[in-house]
Structure formats: structure tokens, C-alpha cells
């Protein structure tokens, strides 16, 4: 009903505008234009999405052959606060999948992008979408710093046997 009124009102103002070149018409036009801009809902098609890298600020993450023990220890601390409620370190699924083998299934970039930028990736990554159908809980954004993310990656590597 309100919409109808607005439409009527707008056409009426337009009538004035045409008849008398009053400035009331301008206001109305400005408001209508505002309603359509920058609502970017067109993320459905995602030809640019790279399933190996994921999407986020990390393009290339260098990991050594050997484990960085200090980073892994720090990563474990973050894991205990922000991850362990939902992920086990075995293969067993809790709320989300178990972590064993994670660093063998995914690239370092993908892991760090996903844990720092989960929502856009859940929307675009076909495998994450399949995973969501199983888990039914979207992985929350736990506001990790870049360092946190790198340390968690190192801890996951340790969990996968890197020494």
C-alpha cells in the first residue's frame, strides 16, 4: 500500500516537475536512484573463484619442510580458544570435520583464506557447499589475525606429522 502511495506520489511530483519545473521532482528522483545502487547481490556466478587458493588476502604462503615449533605452539593456543569447540584433531567429525589430514587435502593459502574469510568462501566453494549440507553449521568468522591464521596452519601441519 505504501509502495502504491509512493508511486502515485512520484508520478504526481513528476507532473509538477514537468508542468512547472519545480525542484520537488529532483528530490524524488534522487531517492529512487539511491534505492538501486551498490547492493551487490550478483555473486551467484563466480568464474573468478579459484578452488585451490580460495578467496581472501593470501595468495602464496611459503611453508618450510620443517616445522616451526614456536609457531605451532602459538597456533595450538589459538586452536584451544577458537577452534576446539567444533573440531577434533583426529578424523572424527564433531560440529565440523576432524583436522587429521587437513594440510594434505588443502593448500596453505586455501586454509588461511578460509579461516580468516569463511563467509564468502562458503558461498562460492563447491566443496564447502557440499560440506555445509553435511554439517549444517556455517563455520563462524572467529576474527583471527594474520599471525593467528599462520600459527594455526603450522599447528595443523604438526598435527599431520610435520616435524
Amino acid at each position: 500500500m505504501r509502495k502504491l502511495f509512493i508511486i502515485l506520489a512520484m508520478s504526481a511530483s513528476l507532473a509538477i516537475a514537468t508542468g512547472c519545473s519545480s525542484n520537488t521532482g529532483n528530490n524524488t528522483t534522487a531517492t529512487t536512484e539511491e534505492t538501486t545502487d551498490d547492493l551487490d547481490m550478483d555473486e551467484e556466478a563466480n568464474p573468478d573463484y579459484d578452488p585451490n587458493r580460495g578467496e581472501g588476502k593470501f595468495t602464496k604462503v611459503e611453508v618450510g619442510d620443517k616445522l616451526d615449533g614456536a609457531m605451532a605452539t602459538s597456533g595450538e593456543k589459538v586452536f584451544n580458544v577458537k577452534c576446539s569447540s567444533c573440531h577434533k584433531l583426529t578424523e572424527e567429525k564433531l560440529v565440523g570435520p576432524g583436522w587429521l589430514g587437513l594440510t594434505k587435502r588443502r593448500t596453505p593459502e586455501w586454509i588461511m583464506n578460509f579461516i580468516t574469510n569463511p563467509d564468502p568462501m562458503i558461498d562460492k566453494d563447491p566443496e564447502l557447499q557440499a560440506q555445509l549440507e553435511i554439517c549444517l553449521v556455517r563455520m563462524p568468522n572467529q576474527n583471527l589475525t594474520d599471525d593467528d591464521a599462520r600459527h594455526i596452519l603450522e599447528f595443523a601441519r604438526k598435527n599431520d606429522g610435520v616435524q
Binding site: 505504501r2 502511495f5 509512493i6 502515485l8 506520489a9 512520484m10 504526481a12 511530483s13 520537488t24 528530490n27 524524488t28 531517492t31 529512487t32
Partner: peptide, 8 residues
């Protein structure tokens, strides 16, 4: 008539 547009 433009009241609704102004508050919209």
C-alpha cells in the same frame, strides 16, 4: 506528496 519519499 513527497513526504513519503523524504522519509523513505
Amino acid at each position: 506528496a513527497d513526504a513519503a519519499a523524504k522519509a523513505y
